[in-house]
């Protein structure tokens, strides 16, 4: 009897699911992992949308664009979530995205004007270290110190690219000199964030390129207060993660609804302790306990999305030259 009920229920559920509109969201891998925001966001949105939200994980932000370019207009995706401001220009160049004005009272350090993409969370790049270390206060001091750092390769990772833009934005034509100063501090360069952070936790380096919000994970999830982010007086480059809708979507209203949902209280309160970033809109409950311990850079840096591609190529060439010697 019980089995029969169960079968009937699942049959009903299946029929209901079939009747629902499906919304396909491409995102990066760690967003949809069991420990990322994906599962909770999915449950919360499906509770209000009468739809079937399907996340498709795909590498990182750069991989998302590569996949969209491969699929072109035939893509199944309705929404792409997880590009950052460094990738917006490349994303727009595909011509696949539609304008979607999302209204929200953003808690970003700078005003948001883009009408194609909506920010859903953000963070500052920063070097994370153990609290028993007195960190340098800028790139020059870091370059002069004996501290060992692990960074990510800008050619394969979005934080790596972020660091590249950070140094370039702060120092312009002086950037090559900064990189030359840093060259002997760089223990190694990794393919992605996970490898670099893993090496740092292993004690392979004194500092690792990550986010100012990284210590929050250790404080909240592990009650470990030994990790901190170094504040640099040049200011910190930002990573703003955005969501956008595809012009070819067969559920455009639902897609817009999802984008608006991502800046709603329901989604924003999930993100800080799953994605370990700042929410783009301050949730009504404020930031989770532990976030108040994080350092707050005074000066936020960001290169305009449309200027990124040209600067990126120049900065990469400088980086390669400085670190290949």
């Amino acid at each position: 009897m019980k089995a029969l009920t169960l079968a009937a229920t699942s049959l009903l559920a299946a029929t209901a699911a079939a009747a629902q509109t499906e919304l396909t969201v491409y995102t990066y891998d760690s967003f949809v992992s069991d420990w990322g925001p994906g599962p909770k966001i999915e449950a919360a949105f499906e509770a209000v949308c009468d739809c079937d939200l399907k996340f498709v994980g795909n590498g990182d932000g750069a991989a998302l664009i590569a996949r969209l370019k491969l699929e072109g207009a035939r893509t199944d995706a309705d929404v792409v979530l997880g590009l950052d401001t460094n990738l917006i220009a490349a994303a727009k160049e595909t011509g696949l995205f539609a304008e979607t004005p999302v209204t929200a009272d953003y808690a970003l350090p700078m005003p948001w004007t883009d009408t194609t993409f909506a920010p859903y969370d953000w963070g500052y790049f920063a070097f994370v270290h153990n609290t028993d270390l007195t960190p340098p206060t800028n790139f020059k001091a870091l370059g002069e110190s004996d501290l060992k750092i692990v960074i990510q390769d800008p050619r394969t990772s979005t934080p790596g690219l972020g660091l590249l833009m950070w140094v370039k934005d702060a120092y312009g034509d002086e950037a090559p000199a900064i990189w030359e100063g840093l060259a002997d501090n760089v223990v190694t360069v990794t393919k992605g964030w996970s490898e670099a952070y893993g090496l740092f936790l292993e004690g392979e380096a004194d500092m690792v390129l990550s986010y100012t919000t990284s210590p929050a994970y250790h404080i909240i999830a592990e009650e470990d207060e030994t990790k901190a982010a170094a504040v640099f007086d040049e200011g910190h480059y930002m990573q703003i993660e955005v969501v956008g809708r595809l012009a070819g979507s067969d559920a455009p209203e639902l897609a817009a609804e999802f984008m608006q949902f991502m800046v709603s209280d329901a989604a924003q309160s999930i993100l800080p302790t799953t994605n370990w970033m700042y929410p783009a809109v301050m949730p009504s409950g404020g930031l989770p306990q532990g976030f108040e311990e994080l350092v707050k850079p005074e000066n936020a840096r960001l290169i305009d999305a449309d200027k990124v591609p040209a600067i990126r190529d120049e900065a990469l060439a400088e980086w390669l030259t400085a670190l290949s010697q």
Binding site: D29, S30, S33, D34, W35, G36, W193, Y197, G198, L201
Partner: peptide
Amino acid sequence: LQMYHLMGAYRM
């Protein structure tokens, strides 16, 4: 892949 997800979520 799950292992990488764990690493990506700080769960070293």
